[in-house]
Amino acid sequence: MLDGLGGTQGTREKGSAPTRAAEADTPELPQAGVRPRPKPSASPVKRSLIGDLRMRVIYRILAVVTALAVAAVAAVTGFFSSGSSDQPGGDASGPIAAPSAAAPSPGSSSPPVPAPTQPAQPTQSVQPTQSAQSAQVPAASPPQTPSASAPASATPSAPASSGDPGDTGTATPEPDRSAVVAALADPRVPELRRDRRLGRLPGKSYRSKHRIQDRKAGVSLVRLGRPWKIFGAAPFSTRQVLPRAKGAGHRAMLVSCPVPTLVQRAPKDTALLAARWTLNHHPRGSRISWVASQPLKRGWLLAYRVNYRVKGKPRSSMAAVAVTEVPGAKPAMLFVTIPDSQRGHWRDINTAVSSLRLG
């Protein structure tokens, strides 16, 4: 019987059976273009830090480390090579000349250096070894002080002892008499030939119970009554003045202050310098003529007449300087001057000088 396809039924049945068997035996092929997924590994692979770096980074690090090592070696080598000459007592690397055998000057206060026992060697440049350097270094002669090279005339004289039981002569040096010599060389200041006490000066005596405290100078003095009056103190500590007199070269005044000159060992010398300084408060061209020179309880008094000219006419003033020592401070000075046109007040000089007290 035909199956409608031009064949017999048996033929159809026979051809279909092998086809199914072939399909069953053929293995399943994978689809084209699809890759199989890799299976994840059980543990990730660990990489070192150095393995992650590129080779050029490693080369740069090695170059920097090498440069630092070379610099460190050079620094250590230079330090040890210069240490022997830079450190105290090190041997010098250059040639050393033989030390000079010159003796210290006569004005030196240091003891003389004994001459070396070895014969003197000529001064020349040599290349000594370490043992030769130790024999030629100037350690045999001690270093000279600045006074050894200075002339004897420039060395200041040592201060003399004042005679006090506790004075050892090592206190602050007292000034020498060079300032006094210079003052006496001034043609305006004559030499003090002999001491003489101050007598009563002309004028009327005025007594006063009032006093003025000069705290800066550490003394007190009388406050004179009228016509005297207190005036501006500068440049002194205290100042009292009389009314201006017609035709006088300057104004009468009584002042006190610490002595404005160099303090000398003798109060008389200090008073001499102070008297010369007071010429600055008199007319130009004034000259001193000594009247009195006497000691005080703690100082010295100098009274003098000051001669000068005013408008071509000779005039004068009576003046006095009293210097007194103040414990722990500079000596105090009292200075009074009255022109001859007010000679009726010259007795106030006696009053002022006798009123000077400590505190």
Rank of each mutant, 00 (worst) to 15 (best):
A292D: 04
V259Q: 00
A275K: 02
H282R: 02
Q264T: 03
G299L: 09
P295W: 06
W290M: 05
W290V: 00
D269N: 04
V259K: 01
A292Y: 01
V291D: 14
R298N: 14
K268E: 14
P295F: 09
P283L: 05
D269M: 03
V259D: 06
A271N: 09
Q264G: 10
T261W: 10
W277G: 11
S293F: 03
L273W: 00
Q264N: 06
S286M: 09
S289W: 13
L272N: 07
P283H: 11
P283W: 04
P267W: 02
L273F: 00
R276Y: 13
R284K: 03
I288G: 01
L272D: 07
R265V: 12
R284L: 09
L279D: 06
A274S: 13
K268D: 03
R284Y: 00
N280Y: 01
Q264D: 08
A274F: 13
V291Y: 12
R265D: 15
K297A: 14
L279G: 03
T261R: 00
R287I: 01
R284T: 07
R284F: 05
R298A: 14
V263T: 08
W290C: 02
S293Q: 01
H282L: 04
A274Y: 13
N280W: 06
G285V: 05
A274C: 12
L272Q: 06
T261A: 02
P267I: 09
W290K: 12
T261E: 01
P295L: 04
L296S: 13
L272H: 04
A292M: 00
